[in-house]
């Protein structure tokens, strides 16, 4: 098996992944601490790639750290910053370091980040990046040349189940699967009926789906996401529930909500697992898992 994450996906168990953000700078202590703290509690951890177009330590460097510390990395790669030569080169580097799980994303516009005047690349898109991985595995590159030593991958991609409009998004989702995606981590979902109806459709495809769960840390944070993040929709009841949390206890309410959603996804067998995004609060991931009854 190419990776222990792939093994977990294929075992049929309820898979749990989480997210670790590389630092802005070369002080790796906090990232290292998060990796060590979480590596045996989840099936794999995603290393974000200049998330929201904010320049940081590279996801590849952080994925190498995870590997060195004995964890299971999922390397996130966006198409925003590298052309096809650089993307393929980084894929080869990753595979040579034992990093086989790769999540392909288009990437946010540079205009949304902290280097607004930079050039966005987008030489490939996420579905083409998945296809490129499958090609490299066959010992060929995108220029049609032979490789001396072919890599192996477990290829992933994302979907936004609450995109508006949804139909063009679903065509793209199917193209990613056709291109060879084996797993999908979704954008955050809070509305269970909507997730269920997406899964009723998605279950027909040969792909494992992990539902994205973003930890709510306060009512203003939930409102901020509703306003600013496309495809994320926190229902009013949850915003109200966050707002009614006793002072200083909002985080506990957020953990409870995340745990409750994960429990439902698990108990009702809605998805193959979950991807927990605790955005800066990685230390509470185990609390979310225990609130979900997973530990």
């Amino acid at each position: 098996m190419v990776s222990s994450f792939k093994e977990a996906l294929e075992s049929g168990k309820f898979v749990v992944t989480c997210e670790v953000a590389p630092p802005k700078g070369i002080n790796l202590e906090k990232t290292k601490h998060h990796i060590e703290f979480l590596k045996d509690k989840v099936d794999a951890m995603n290393l974000t790639d200049h998330q929201s177009s904010v320049m940081r330590y590279p996801s590849l460097g952080a994925a190498i750290m995870v590997k060195e510390l004995g964890g299971e990395p999922i390397l996130q790669m966006t198409c925003r910053d590298r052309n096809r030569l650089a993307l393929q080169a980084d894929l080869l580097c990753a595979a040579s370091k034992g990093i086989h799980n790769v999540l392909c994303l288009t990437g946010d516009s540079v205009m949304l980040g902290d280097h607004k005047e930079a050039k966005g690349v987008f030489d490939l898109d996420s579905s083409q990046l998945v296809a490129a991985m499958r090609l490299l595995e066959k010992g060929k590159d995108l220029g049609g040349n032979e490789l001396d030593g072919a890599p192996a991958f477990c290829a992933g991609a994302i979907v936004t189940p609450e995109a508006n409009p949804i139909d063009p998004q679903l065509i793209k989702f199917e193209k990613k699967i056709d291109a060879g995606a084996e797993f999908i981590q979704t954008q955050a979902v809070y509305d269970m009926p909507k997730l269920k109806s997406f899964m009723d459709y998605a279950k027909q495809f040969p792909v494992k789906i992990l539902a994205g769960i973003i930890l709510l840390t306060s009512a203003p944070m939930a409102r901020f996401m509703n306003k600013n993040i496309a495809g994320v929709n926190v229902p009013q009841e949850l915003v109200d529930e966050m707002a009614s949390a006793p002072k200083g206890r909002a985080m506990e309410t957020g953990i409870e909500i995340a745990g409750r959603m994960i429990k439902q996804i698990h108990d009702e067998n809605i998805c193959d697992g979950v991807h927990i995004m605790a955005i800066g609060k990685e230390e509470v991931v185990p609390d979310i898992m225990s609130a979900a009854g997973l530990t």
Partner: peptide, 20 residues
């Protein structure tokens, strides 16, 4: 398309408008 994508939308579409 702001990103010049040729295989369909990114995840940033919001009510049919571009993420930027």
């Amino acid at each position: 398309c702001h990103k010049g994508l040729v295989n369909g939308p990114c995840g940033g579409t919001d009510q049919g408008r571009c993420e930027i």
